[in-house]
Write a protein that binds this DNA or RNA. Sequence first.
DNA 1: GGATGAAGGTGGCATAGACCAATAGAGGCG
DNA 2: CGCCTCTATTGGTCTATGCCACCTTCATCC
Lengths: 273, 273
Amino acid sequence: MTAGDSGAVLKRERVRDHILQLIESLRPGDAIPSERTLCADLSVSRPTLRAAVDELVAAGLLVREHGRGMFVAPEKITQELVSDSHGMTLPQASGTWSSRLLEFTTIAAGARVGRKLSLSPAADIVYAARLRLVDGAPMAIEHLHIRADLVPALTAQELESGDLYEHLRERHRVQVRDAVQTIEPTVVSQAEGRLLEVPHLSPALLFERLTNDTEGRPVEYVHSVYRGDRYRIVSRLTLDASHTQGTPPETGFIPGMPPGTVAQWEAAPTTPR
Amino acid sequence: MTAGDSGAVLKRERVRDHILQLIESLRPGDAIPSERTLCADLSVSRPTLRAAVDELVAAGLLVREHGRGMFVAPEKITQELVSDSHGMTLPQASGTWSSRLLEFTTIAAGARVGRKLSLSPAADIVYAARLRLVDGAPMAIEHLHIRADLVPALTAQELESGDLYEHLRERHRVQVRDAVQTIEPTVVSQAEGRLLEVPHLSPALLFERLTNDTEGRPVEYVHSVYRGDRYRIVSRLTLDASHTQGTPPETGFIPGMPPGTVAQWEAAPTTPR
DNA sequence: GGATGAAGGTGGCATAGACCAATAGAGGCG
DNA sequence: CGCCTCTATTGGTCTATGCCACCTTCATCC
């Protein structure tokens, strides 16, 4: 009995559902049987079982601990949305942020970054990689690329403490004004997973931000990866009159965010456990 | 030479980097050597090579086509941020949206949904699952839960065409006013992958939205999964005076989104190919 | 000439087995 | 008694191999 034995009922799925059932009968933190035990119970090979477990780990339902075993994940993040009848209190950003500098050099921009910053590929930029932590726990990896000629005296100290934008304004006479930011989902690589202390291929948010100063010059290009299990974006949407009373376009409307919507953002690290 | 031969340099990583290099020398759509060929070239087993490729597929750099081969992904979504020096034109939402109704029933709310909508678990809700398409291509799966007593005459037709909020207002006398929405990264399940036509475990965005009407009553609870390779969130951030001149808080600031930031959203499906 | 179908290549799924690395616990030694 | 080491267990990685399903191609047949 191998892969494609008619029916499209993958062995992985059967195994996954079995473990899922197992999880539901347990509480967060409880241990589940070892890989080898489950293999025997379900009559599947270990790679197959691991493939099934991989899904559950990626989905955040299970955590693995090398040498110890597998455990039901402490919380399901999708169960956290608060909505207390009237006011809708947001779990406002909590915890104290800190940074650990991973790298800090001045290098040539290169083609890709140069294009984004409207610079020659040979122009110097300050490149810094920071691990951002909340209450000591890793939350994000930030890759900053800043025009070197604008901040010739930028120090490592300034990247490790305080608000970078404030340092830019106070010490370097660079006043940031606006930015364009894109957000998309991604998964963490092995190296990123190690830094963020999450399993390989865990969901994450990828931010790309291009910041301009008051003169319209591109100042920095930031590329960040935020942990998906601890970070979420919360927005309050208000449907304005032009939409609720006007003629909404049949085509081109956006289900996720209705047109004419005014949004207020909060980006909040969610508290663990 | 097996797994942990000192050095922590995983074979997978070496293979991945090799393929990455290969990708960079090619253009989108180009084919890369077959799995078996690469195995021979790199002297690794096929499962190992597949594990490396899995990462690249999950990251959206490579696409696999059963029976045909592996190809460089049509676009690298991380290369699409536009920034034309002055105005910053956004690749505004394009394409025409349509819906395919997957399910449409009236059922009891249950504990979880009931809690979100401030209803008794036994109260009836209209549940609808929709596949949202852009120019015919799957973009998202939406699970809607609407208070049944507010929309007793909701039809399948209304869920398949036009703006739902408009139908609610015009036909059902329900005027939506605001909503709280959370966005977090996730990965698609096997079933979701099939519907969205993306590989299993691909990155995706999970939206949860709770919508209220003008009287403050919760109307609908929506749970949606958007393709990560075709959908992204674009925001324009403006740093206001209170931040650029005031005293930014040392702790509690949010790197992804500076405090005092005014954001204007666009949620844009990215064009394929 | 156009449809048919067999062959070979490709990715997809699964197996069995091996060794490494991290952990926890049992046992021995000081 | 306390510390250490040794061992069993668990997850982590990799190999080698097989079969299946899908796609393309090309030779064949009508």
